Simulated scan of single mutants.
Amino acid sequence: MEGTPRLFIVVPCYNEEQVLPETAPRFLDKINEMIDRGAINSDSRILFVDDGSSDSTWNIIMALNRQDPHFQGIRQSRNRGHQNAVLAGLMEAKDKADIVISIDCDGQDDFNAMDAMVDKYHEGYDVVYGVRSSRETDTFFKRFTAQSFYKLLAALGADTVYNHADYRLTSKRVLEAFADFHEVNLFLRGLFPLVGFPSTTVEYERHERIAGHSHYPLRKMLALAFNGITSLSIKPIRIITALGAIVSLISFIGVIWVITKAAMGDTVSGWASTACILCFVSGVQLLSLGVIGEYIGKIYLETKHRPRYIISDRTE
């Protein structure tokens, strides 16, 4: 590709006053390193997205901007969640950059993978997914649940990249096409494969968090996983339909059995079997209603067309 592309590194931040002073210089070093070797334009930027932090994160971003123009920042009017923060940064950079790399603020993702991503862009790829080479640093529980989640998404027909989170490079034309996606319930790692365009992967090792603590506890991880499943696939509803058909068939067989026994005069009254059947069927019904209700709730939110993010402040 002719010329050097202008790169924006989009970094979502939420209450990162401890880690931001540590990782910001590393982002600057990396962008200057790529500028020096001629991979990107000298007008490239680092765009921090403050997701309505309640600490001094925004003050730190403004101070960084005053120190070096390579640092820029936008601030959401309130906390909207990680996916909305990433989206806000991508859409902010869409009209200013040729390529955009989204990466978390905590320093766990290998900064050096950006070099390989940019090189892949120069080779002609519009999307470059950062993929973890291993999960040896994770606990057994986190490794097992994460891998099971990706396998479950694949089984449900969702098009995702295995072991990829939100560390990726996207070109300008991908972001312009992505702007036509208007989902309120965001699961970005499942939406970008739907856009298409040539794509590839770059492997990297994930490190320990540099400072502070994770803002993604198990509760939020499970919520994100469930949101991803219900946003990308309708197979859970089809599974409910199949389950309902199986339970109905079993119930019909049971009714025939009861009628046959009654006709033969061989009836034995018992509360245990009745209670077991009622509990089983009631549990299936409640579970089914819960999954269907989740889809209906998503439809309800989508029809409102509320803004997915609101920018209240900018450093420029």
Rank of each mutant, 00 (worst) to 15 (best):
F192A: 04
S248I: 06
G190I: 12
L249G: 08
T200W: 04
T267I: 13
L175F: 10
G212M: 11
L224H: 11
A177P: 01
W257F: 08
M264K: 14
L175Y: 06
S199D: 14
V247C: 06
L224R: 08
R209L: 07
E205F: 10
A245L: 13
T260A: 11
S269F: 06
W257L: 13
R206W: 09
P217M: 07
G254A: 14
G190W: 07
M221R: 06
K261D: 09
F181G: 00
L175A: 03
G244I: 01
S269Y: 14
D180M: 09
L191I: 06
T260N: 01
I237W: 01
V255R: 03
G265R: 02
S199L: 03
I250Q: 08
H215S: 15
D266Q: 11
A179F: 06
A242I: 03
E208D: 14
N227T: 13
E208I: 05
F197K: 06
V202Y: 02
V195R: 02
A242D: 06
M264F: 12
V258Y: 09
T241M: 04
L232D: 01
V255D: 04
A223C: 02
G228N: 00
P198R: 14
E203H: 11
T241V: 06
Y216A: 04
S233Y: 09
T241W: 07
L249N: 07
R238Q: 07
V195E: 08
F181S: 04
N227M: 15
A177L: 13
Y204H: 13
D180K: 06
H215P: 01
L243N: 12
V184H: 15
R209P: 02
F181P: 01
I240V: 06
A245G: 00
S233E: 11
V247K: 09
L232R: 13
T230H: 07
I259K: 10
L186N: 01
L232M: 13
R209T: 03
L243Y: 08
Y216N: 06
G244T: 00
V184L: 03
R219T: 14
M221A: 11
R209H: 00
A177Q: 08
I210P: 01
H182C: 02
I259D: 04
V247I: 07
G244H: 10
I240K: 00
T241K: 12
S231E: 04
A242H: 10
H213A: 07
F187P: 00
L186M: 01
T241N: 12
L194M: 14
P198Y: 06
I240N: 08
A211Q: 13
L194S: 12
Y204V: 05
S251C: 04
S248T: 13
I250H: 09
L186R: 05
I250L: 14
G254L: 10
V202R: 00
V255M: 15
I253C: 05
G212L: 10
H207M: 03
A179W: 08
R206A: 05
F226A: 14
S269Q: 07
I256Q: 10
E183K: 02
A242M: 11
I234W: 09
V247W: 08
N227G: 02
R238L: 12
P236A: 09
P193E: 11
E176D: 08
F187M: 10
I253T: 09
P236Q: 10
V247A: 14
T230G: 09
G212P: 15
E208L: 12
G265I: 04
D180G: 04
F197T: 13
A177T: 09
T260G: 07
